[in-house]
């Protein structure tokens, strides 16, 4: 039941409980209760809207930042990750394998704003050894959605 609900809403958060109940062979009351539980247990961590800000003329810039850090005794990377997450500019933090330790996604109004944040805030934090910034120039697909409608429905309307 839980997985049925999660599968149905993963890419369709705005679906109403009645439709969701129909899809999952349940009742709106049961679905409502289950959703509440999933939220309480932090299985559903939030409802996110994927917005293409460029389309409404809003200036925005995103960057991936590779961060090398010195792990701290006893807490590893967790303490630093927690510190980083308190910055509103930091939208995602991942512990990764490969050339760096943490991968961040930083959001700002302009590339300059991001650059300033990295040089003046991020790189001065204790434990941060080095950073590499990669600005995102264009987003084609995000969270499973094609941002620019790369592929259209090419099927004949009737067949």
């Amino acid at each position: 039941m839980r997985n049925k609900i999660l599968n149905a809403i993963e890419n369709h958060a705005r679906i109403n409980t009645e439709d969701l109940a129909a899809i999952t062979c349940s009742t709106p009351e049961v679905v409502e209760k289950e959703l509440k539980k999933l939220e309480d247990e932090n299985v559903i961590c939030g409802y996110h809207t994927l917005i293409n800000w460029e389309k409404v003329g809003e200036e925005s810039a995103d960057a991936f930042i590779e961060v090398k850090v010195a792990p701290q005794k006893g807490v590893g990377f967790d303490q630093l990750a927690e510190n980083l997450s308190s910055y509103p500019q930091v939208s995602d933090i991942f512990l990764v394998s490969g050339n760096c330790d943490l991968m961040l996604v930083i959001k700002g109004k302009t590339m300059r704003e991001i650059a300033m944040f990295v040089s003046e805030e991020l790189s001065t934090i204790d434990g941060v050894l080095s950073t590499t910034t990669q600005f995102i120039l264009k987003t084609y697909k995000k969270d499973g959605f094609e941002v620019e409608n790369i592929s259209k429905d090419e099927r004949f309307a009737l067949s």
């Binding site: 599968n7 149905a8 009645e18 439709d19 129909a22 899809i23 999952t24 062979c25």
Partner: peptide
């Protein structure tokens, strides 16, 4: 699985 979700969705709408 995906078709089945859609099937239930549309069916419910018709019934409504």
């Amino acid at each position: 699985d995906e078709y089945d979700r859609r099937r239930r969705f549309v069916l419910n709408r018709f019934h409504k």
